[in-house]
């Protein structure tokens, strides 16, 4: 396992964990939520969303169960586990440090220009 091996993967995981941290949601809901939260900037590639969801379930950061959607369809809902909550906290922290570092670098570059 390489938790920080990949920016894309790490970021998508973080976004998913964040999206389901408030309430349990189905896959489509998660993709809509991420899009809303980011004011439409981050569009989740639906092709990578479901593999990511299954992977997170496998890692026991999410729990999946079948339920009924808002329009009365059968849907698979994902819920954050305790392990997932801890992971969310630590990834949020890592991300903040990372983006701060990038910000700092960009600021320096701007000064040189």
């Amino acid at each position: 396992m390489h938790p920080n091996a990949d920016v894309l993967q790490g970021t998508l995981d973080l976004l998913i964990l964040k999206a389901v941290s408030l309430e349990s949601m189905h896959g489509w809901g998660i993709s809509q939520r991420i899009q809303q939260f980011s004011s439409g900037v981050l569009e989740v590639n639906q092709g990578s969303l479901y593999p990511a969801l299954h992977r997170l379930v496998k890692r026991k950061w999410l729990e999946a169960s079948w339920g009924t959607s808002e329009n009365n369809r059968r849907a698979r809902f994902y819920k954050l586990t305790a392990l997932g909550r801890r992971q969310l906290a630590s990834e949020t922290d890592t991300w903040r440090r990372f983006s701060a570092a990038v910000e700092a670098v960009l600021a320096v570059t701007a000064a040189v220009n």
Binding site: G27, W28, Y50, S69, R73, R74, A75, R76
Partner: peptide, 20 residues
């Protein structure tokens, strides 16, 4: 294990929601 049917069902749900 997640069965093939369940995967299909989940993806069909997604498509339905998107189409709606």
């Amino acid at each position: 294990r997640v069965s093939d049917d369940e995967i299909d069902e989940e993806l069909r749900f997604h498509l339905a929601m998107e189409a709606e």
